[in-house]
């Protein structure tokens, strides 16, 4: 599923990761996920399925929520990528992380970085999301542990916290 062709034809790519300019030498079809994890040591994005189903490799690419296992590094050239490690400055991050902890939104934790990124992305777009909005916003992120209920609660709580004066 995860063809990364031989490293014989590497090219240089430049992009911004978590606000820092990065140059990497990689095969054009090497996946962004591998570049982030192996070349840049950013292991917060996880590989769950390698085919864009589970969302545990979610990152933001030019403010779009993407599965980094489906993005060839050539496509990331010139973009700005934000991973879970780069989200600490985001105003929603701490409330989301705290509400995930309080509500039980993280169990085994493997989907959690992607889930929290997806949640932050949703709350950036929707000020006051309904439960249906939350379900839809997280539809690309699979969790096998929680049955999602406590994740919905965590996202709703973070949203409410923001709305409160």
């Amino acid at each position: 599923m995860n063809p990364s062709p031989a490293a014989s034809t590497k090219c240089e790519f430049s992009f911004t990761v978590n606000g820092e300019a990065k140059n990497v030498l990689a095969h054009p079809m090497e996946r962004l996920l591998e570049v982030l994890r192996n070349d840049l040591g950013l292991t917060g994005a996880k590989e769950g399925c390698g085919e864009g189903e589970c969302g545990s490799c979610s990152v933001l690419l030019d403010d779009m929520l993407v599965n980094s296992c489906l993005i060839p590094i050539a496509q990331a050239n010139g973009t700005s990528v934000v991973t879970i490690e780069g989200m600490s400055a985001h105003s929603l991050m701490k409330p989301l992380q705290e509400s995930f902890l309080e509500c039980g939104g993280a169990q085994c934790g493997i989907c959690t970085p992607g889930m929290i990124l997806a949640a932050a992305h949703l709350l950036d777009k929707k000020l006051d999301p309904t439960l249906a909005d939350i379900r839809e916003g997280l539809a690309g992120n699979l969790c096998r542990c929680t049955g999602y209920m406590q994740i919905f609660e965590a996202v709703a709580k973070a949203a409410r916290g923001r709305a409160a004066p």
Binding site: R37, T43, G44, A45, K46, E47, T83, I84, E85, S88, L96, Q97, F100, L101, E102, G104, A106, G109, I110, T112, P113, I116
Partner: peptide, 21 residues
């Protein structure tokens, strides 16, 4: 009581270390 999960903070920040990391 629902005390915080011991390894919770590492999990919500992406710092938790799985074998592939």
């Amino acid at each position: 009581a629902s005390v915080p999960r011991k390894e919770g903070w590492d999990k919500v920040t992406g710092a938790a270390r799985y074998v592939d990391d």
